[in-house]
Design a protein around this nucleic acid. Sequence first.
DNA 1: ATGCCTATTATTAATAGA
Length: 275
Amino acid sequence: MKLATFNVNGINGRLPVLLRWLAEASPDVVCLQELKAPQEKFPQAALREAGYGAIWHGQKSWNGVAILARGQVPLETRRGLPGDPDDSHSRYIEAVIDGVLIGCLYLPNGNPAPGPKFDHKLRWFARLAAYAAELLALEVPVALVGDYNVMPTELDVYKPERWRDDALFRPEVREAFRALVAQGWTDALRALHPEERIYTFWDYFRNAFGRNAGLRIDHLLLSPALAERLAAADVDRAVRGWEKASDHAPTWIDLADVAPRRRPRARSAARAATR
DNA sequence: ATGCCTATTATTAATAGA
């Protein structure tokens, strides 16, 4: 299973980019963030024509998340993160696809910090951590993927000193991310590329992409059962250079298929047959 | 400390992003 996350920064303005990338990369599952479109303006027909079923949670102007699956409609298991009934932002949607529980998230940006927006970010992070612990306890294959708005370490920022007081890099959010991963999750890109400078976002300002002034803020966290299957991970950074590009690039992993498991009876019968 | 760019919404400017 090729599983990707892509903050599209406006799904309608970005539709040609999204469709071109889907055709070229052919991912099996895609988590999208920042739809910036109300529920009824999601381009379901165009995506269906491209071969993808979808579930989505839109919102006027901002936020918005979706999950696409090639050749099937994702089986939705949740929309909205538990823990705050007053949370009106569309920032979490979840589905089961081919035996994998996939949570698609868009963590609040949190700037300016300190301030109410930063407090909101930390509260949202705490709710995510509480829910993530519940998912881990299920001991099933789970992927929590999306735009976390956090650079986990100095290796994930082109110029750490410039970002030290920013809501994406302050010690509180780095610690929140570290503690989340320490529950038992695997940061897929970092696991396969421990030393490499990898970015998933480049600002529109100051020719950031041309200078490779990037940030790694889009992450795929895998439960232990899924981490065993991790075979490849990368960023389709060329997409950031396309006409009318999002400021994020698609970030993806490849998960090996599960070996077909025989029933115990069948296995002992097979063993007896080879004796 | 702020603009630089880009998108959406609503009326030519404000807000948010990161």
